[in-house]
Simulated scan of single mutants.
Amino acid sequence: MLYIIQILAAILMGTAIGAIIEPRNKVLTIGSFVAVGFGIATLIWPSWLMLSIGTVIFLAVQSLQRDPVATRA
């Protein structure tokens, strides 16, 4: 079970690093760094709690980062 938690933490870290590489705004960058931190902590101390907190933070900042779409008439 610990390996599954660590694999999910690695996936979380990979997606968060992908969001850091192409930052769109400051909130997304900070939230992605926090998610990477929780992912590293989960790799060191496998815990569902840290993994779920990191995932919730990452998904929350992903939902906030959408830029308004310019529409053409």
Score class of each variant (00 low, 15 high):
residue 1 M to V: 15
residue 1 M to L: 13
residue 1 M to Y: 14
residue 2 L to D: 13
residue 2 L to R: 13
residue 3 Y to G: 10
residue 3 Y to M: 11
residue 3 Y to H: 11
residue 4 I to Y: 11
residue 5 I to K: 06
residue 5 I to V: 12
residue 5 I to N: 06
residue 6 Q to A: 07
residue 6 Q to L: 09
residue 7 I to M: 09
residue 7 I to W: 07
residue 7 I to C: 10
residue 8 L to D: 02
residue 8 L to Q: 01
residue 8 L to W: 02
residue 8 L to C: 12
residue 8 L to Y: 00
residue 8 L to E: 07
residue 9 A to H: 07
residue 10 A to C: 13
residue 10 A to Y: 01
residue 11 I to L: 15
residue 12 L to Q: 03
residue 12 L to G: 05
residue 13 M to S: 11
residue 13 M to D: 05
residue 13 M to R: 08
residue 13 M to Q: 01
residue 14 G to C: 12
residue 14 G to E: 01
residue 14 G to V: 12
residue 14 G to T: 10
residue 14 G to W: 06
residue 16 A to N: 10
residue 17 I to K: 04
residue 17 I to S: 03
residue 17 I to G: 06
residue 17 I to V: 15
residue 17 I to F: 14
residue 19 A to T: 08
residue 19 A to G: 07
residue 19 A to L: 13
residue 19 A to F: 10
residue 19 A to V: 06
residue 20 I to M: 11
residue 20 I to K: 06
residue 20 I to T: 09
residue 21 I to E: 04
residue 22 E to Y: 05
residue 22 E to G: 04
residue 22 E to N: 10
residue 22 E to F: 07
residue 23 P to W: 00
residue 23 P to F: 00
residue 23 P to K: 05
residue 24 R to Q: 04
residue 24 R to N: 02
residue 24 R to L: 07
residue 25 N to W: 11
residue 25 N to G: 15
residue 26 K to A: 15
residue 26 K to I: 15
residue 26 K to N: 15
residue 26 K to T: 15
residue 27 V to E: 14
residue 27 V to H: 05
residue 27 V to S: 08
residue 28 L to P: 01
residue 28 L to I: 05
residue 29 T to K: 08
residue 29 T to F: 12
residue 30 I to T: 15
residue 30 I to Q: 05
residue 31 G to N: 10
residue 32 S to D: 04
residue 32 S to R: 01
residue 33 F to E: 09
residue 33 F to A: 13
residue 35 A to N: 06
residue 35 A to P: 13
residue 36 V to Q: 03
residue 36 V to M: 01
residue 37 G to D: 02
residue 38 F to T: 00
residue 38 F to P: 02
residue 40 I to D: 02
residue 40 I to Y: 05
residue 41 A to W: 10
residue 41 A to V: 10
residue 42 T to E: 06
residue 42 T to I: 14
residue 43 L to V: 12
residue 43 L to W: 05
residue 44 I to C: 11
residue 44 I to A: 10
residue 44 I to N: 04
residue 45 W to A: 12
residue 45 W to K: 10
residue 45 W to T: 08
residue 45 W to D: 04
residue 46 P to M: 06
residue 46 P to V: 00
residue 46 P to C: 03
residue 46 P to F: 00
residue 47 S to Y: 01
residue 47 S to N: 11
residue 50 M to N: 09
residue 50 M to G: 03
residue 51 L to Q: 03
residue 52 S to Q: 08
residue 52 S to C: 08
residue 52 S to G: 03
residue 52 S to N: 08
residue 53 I to M: 08
residue 53 I to D: 03
residue 53 I to K: 02
residue 54 G to F: 14
residue 55 T to E: 08
residue 56 V to F: 13
residue 57 I to C: 03
residue 57 I to Y: 02
residue 57 I to R: 12
residue 57 I to D: 14
residue 57 I to G: 09
residue 58 F to V: 07
residue 59 L to H: 01
residue 59 L to N: 13
residue 61 V to N: 08
residue 61 V to K: 15
residue 63 S to G: 11
residue 64 L to Y: 12
residue 64 L to N: 00
residue 66 R to L: 10
residue 66 R to K: 11
residue 67 D to N: 14
residue 67 D to V: 10
residue 68 P to E: 03
residue 68 P to W: 05
residue 69 V to C: 09
residue 70 A to P: 00
residue 70 A to C: 10
residue 70 A to T: 01
residue 70 A to E: 00
residue 70 A to D: 09
residue 71 T to N: 03
residue 71 T to F: 01
residue 72 R to P: 01
residue 72 R to I: 15
residue 72 R to M: 12
residue 72 R to C: 15
residue 73 A to S: 15
